[in-house]
């Protein structure tokens, strides 16, 4: 199978639907000690105290308030490595705006920028998917962002595909749970792995049932309980397979603010969330972080929630970071 050519085709297709995000909580902000002295000789506190906030820091409009909270806290993905496997070498470029001015960039440059905005302190690595060489893992937590698909004529089993070292390594990491794999669900308005124009995304199919793989669909906006979101018209959905449903998340991709649409710009949001969670729970395994994101997804922010459409629901960074119980 001519995997290299297939990847090119898909990356471009995802790019045509060019970008954004989803979910809020109070964030701590460390005050300086001097600020904690009341009056002349009065009370001084012997440690800096984070003051509870009720509003998140200012973030671009396309981002979820949850991300603003992460920024304010200063824990922005430190210690995690996000590897963007994408197009960094083609001549194909398109325009968008992540709130920092209009830019014209390659697909990979866009997804990389988005992930770095969600988790600014994460180490971001770029892996051009035309190289086909194995993806290597960095020390610490690894997140692989796949905003592309591997399409071929429908009807094969993933086992029949002659994977390149690149995809073989990614599938292996997802199987063994050694890296979180955030995979864009696709933009064909079909179930994950479904047939469109006689073709299927075999990378989707190969990741079904893998421990640390997450399929990411796109909502047209970030959902709230009062303003529920719905699946973007182009986004692939979870479908009837329980193995897909249990590893499928959705996030807001508000193209009206960025001019970037597509599940390509949903996956980096989950990649950033995973990095932030990893910076909090430094001993957590990729599978544990994957499950944390999946198990804390919200369904009350979605229009007519149904697992076959939304899978586990809308990712909620704040809930993924919160305790189950406290006493």
């Amino acid at each position: 199978m001519p995997a290299r050519h297939l990847k090119f085709g898909i990356a471009t297709a995802f790019a045509m639907l060019s970008a954004p995000i989803a979910s809020a909580q109070e964030a701590p902000d460390a005050d300086e000690m001097a600020a904690l002295c009341h009056g002349g000789l009065s009370i001084c506190v012997s440690a800096t105290i984070p003051a509870a906030r009720t509003q998140a820091a200012t973030t671009p409009g396309w981002m979820s308030p949850d991300v603003g909270a992460a920024w304010a806290a200063g824990y922005k993905g430190k210690g995690a490595t996000i590897t963007i496997v994408d197009d960094f070498s083609s001549t194909s470029r398109f325009s968008g705006n992540f709130g920092i001015g209009v830019q014209t960039q390659r697909h990979g440059e866009w997804t990389r920028e988005e992930a770095s905005m969600i988790a600014p302190l994460a180490t971001i690595r770029s892996k051009d998917f035309t190289t086909s060489s194995s993806v290597t893992l960095a020390p610490g937590l690894n997140v692989l962002n796949l905003s592309y698909g591997m399409y071929a004529t429908a009807g094969y089993s993933p086992n029949q595909i002659g994977w390149s070292a690149e995809e073989a390594s990614i599938i292996s990491y997802a199987t063994r749970g050694s890296a979180i794999v955030s995979k864009a669900a696709g933009n064909d308005s079909v179930a994950v792995g479904g047939v469109t124009n006689g073709q299927q995304d075999y990378l989707d199919l190969a990741l079904v049932g893998k421990a640390s793989a997450i399929f990411v669909g796109a909502l047209s906006t970030n959902g709230t309980t009062t303003n529920k979101a719905q699946l973007a018209w182009y986004s692939n959905y979870a479908g009837s397979n329980p193995l897909v449903q249990s590893h499928f998340l959705v996030v807001g991709v508000d193209g009206s603010k960025t001019d970037l649409y597509g599940t390509s710009f949903a996956a980096p949001i989950i990649s950033g969330y995973a990095a932030i969670i990893g910076s909090k729970f430094t001993k957590a395994t990729p599978t544990q972080i994957t499950n944390d994101l999946l198990n804390t997804a919200r369904t009350d922010t979605l229009v007519n929630y149904n697992a076959s459409v939304y899978g586990k629901g809308e990712a909620s960074l704040s809930r993924a970071l919160a305790p189950v119980a406290i006493r």
Binding site: T48, I49, P50, A73, K76, L321
Partner: peptide
């Protein structure tokens, strides 16, 4: 700070 982005052990400093 239990629900913040801060590592659990880090929160004790505050």
């Amino acid at each position: 700070l239990a629900a913040s982005q801060m590592a659990p052990e880090e929160t004790l400093k505050y």
